[in-house]
Amino acid sequence: MKRIMLLLCLTLVSCGKDDGITPVSFVQLLSNPGKLEGKRVSVFGFFAVGVGAELFIDKVHAQFGDGASAITVIDTTENGEMTFNCQGKYVIIKATFDMHRGLHSLKDVERIYEPGKPPCFASQ
């Protein structure tokens, strides 16, 4: 599974820009957040719900609730459809990366999808 994730992350990074969205690895977001703040990004991770909706580096970190390897996903849907439809899956999220008071988050989510499948969430 780690090999698949690494391959996907490398593929995302090497593909260049897509509609103004910069493909980045999860590690890039955590290690150099200032460089990406306010930019539209595409990132792969494990989407889980605990205290809130979060994208983790992988399923194991999600199971342990490892906040240091998580990015908050801001769900602004009225009924929580984004969180409900996408939780518990390895996904790619296209959104704006934000840092507020040192907290990493993905906001203004455009799309969440499992690689090779239709989106579990797409903004209108």
Rank of each mutant, 00 (worst) to 15 (best):
L29D: 10
I112W: 02
T22K: 06
N79Y: 08
S69W: 06
C120Q: 01
H104Q: 01
G80Q: 03
A70R: 08
N85K: 07
P119G: 11
G38E: 04
S69H: 13
A122M: 05
V49G: 03
R40C: 14
Y90S: 07
T22I: 14
C86P: 03
L103K: 15
A95L: 07
R111Q: 15
D58G: 05
P23T: 00
D108V: 03
K39I: 07
M99E: 10
I57A: 12
V109Y: 00
D75T: 06
K59C: 05
Q124Y: 02
N85I: 03
K2E: 14
F121V: 08
L7E: 10
T22G: 00
M82Y: 02
L10H: 13
L36S: 08
S123P: 04
G16S: 05
F44C: 10
F97A: 11
D108T: 15
L106E: 01
L7P: 13
V51R: 14
F26Q: 07
D18K: 12
F56L: 05
E81I: 15
S105D: 07
G16C: 04
S123N: 10
N79S: 15
G45R: 05
M1I: 07
V60W: 01
A48N: 11
I93V: 14
K35S: 11
F26I: 08
G116Q: 02
L8E: 12
F26S: 11
P118Y: 00
Q28P: 00
G67D: 15
G80T: 03
F44N: 08
A53P: 07
E114I: 09
A48F: 07
D66C: 10
R101I: 07
M82V: 08
I74E: 06
T72Y: 04
D58Y: 01
L8K: 13
Q28G: 01
V91R: 03
I92T: 10
I92Y: 06
D98M: 09
H104R: 15
G20F: 03
A48T: 03
F44K: 04
Y90T: 04
S31C: 12
V27L: 14
K35A: 10
